[in-house]
């Protein structure tokens, strides 16, 4: 059992963003969610992670019903996410950004020092892995765009999610960093994490995905491995209008 939605729908005013989207992602694989602008990909992410409540349909993860649950509950169920326009805590240091990804439960846990040795070691481990450990003491607002994207990812990974949703990991990123992000996603996937990636960069999508779902007008129109999607007529139609 994995991340699965049935008949997910959402309308903003009169605009239908999601139109009964039933999707089942493959556990342990790198899944990609592609589609033209406005096809409902980000709305889909927001419904799955509880940021907005769907008008209808269900979200389930590993057999648990997550429909309409608060975002922090969904995060704690093991689904981490990044945002389309990368979001970090601007006036916190990079280290604090990563540390705040493991919120405490209970009174005793809450009053423990935020700078516990074990947590700091783990957080520094993620910063190191993403190659930004030298920025640990800098405030996030002083980092470059690419560094902020890496920092956001480090924070999400700190919470040890089994499934990671990435909203445009390649957006605004230079080619060298893009390669690194691609390699990183494959590595993290090899360690057992499931990925669902919304992305417009087709080179990246085709090179790292195992399974691709194509959205158009708020619902999936095709799915399959990259080789199959590349030649699918409905996909070409949606993208190129032929």
């Amino acid at each position: 059992m994995t991340l699965e939605t049935t008949g997910l729908s959402k309308a903003f005013g009169g605009v239908t963003a999601l139109d009964g989207a039933s999707v089942s992602f493959h556990q342990g694989e790198v899944n990609a969610l592609i589609g033209p602008n406005g096809s409902g990909k980000t709305t889909y992410f927001n419904c799955v992670t509880g940021m907005i409540k769907p008008d209808g349909g269900t979200v389930s993860y590993q057999g648990r019903d997550l429909t309409g649950k608060a975002p922090h509950r969904i995060a704690r169920a093991g689904i981490g996410r990044t945002f389309q326009l990368c979001r970090t805590f601007p006036r916190m240091t990079a280290l604090e950004n990563v540390l705040s990804a493991v919120p405490p439960t209970g009174l005793i846990g809450g009053l423990r020092s935020a700078r516990g040795r074990a947590e700091i070691e783990r957080a520094m481990g993620w910063l190191t892995r993403l190659g930004i450990e030298h920025l640990a003491g800098s405030e996030a607002r002083d980092l470059s765009w690419g560094q902020q994207k890496l920092l956001e990812l480090a924070g999400v990974l700190m919470a040890e999610p089994e499934t990671v949703l990435l909203d445009e990991p390649a957006g605004g990123v230079n080619p060298a960093l893009l390669d690194r992000i691609g390699v990183l996603i494959r590595e993290l996937n090899a360690e057992g994490r499931t990925f669902v990636i919304v992305e417009h960069n087709m080179d990246l999508v085709m090179s790292i995905s195992d399974h691709i779902v194509v959205f158009d007008r708020g619902r999936p129109i095709a799915e399959g491995p990259p080789s199959q999607i590349r030649t699918d007529e409905r996909v070409l139609g949606a993208y190129l209008g032929v």
Binding site: H72, F89, L99, P103, G110, L111, R112, A114, G116
Partner: peptide, 30 residues
């Protein structure tokens, strides 16, 4: 001072910075 240095305090400060992001990271903001 106690809250400022605690993990609870870090959670509160993440609400100040970006409440939706804090919530997405698993903080029970409300």
């Amino acid at each position: 001072w106690l809250i400022d240095r605690s993990r609870f305090g870090l959670g509160l400060k993440s609400i100040r910075e970006d409440e939706d992001k804090a919530e997405a990271l698993g903080t029970a903001t409300y």
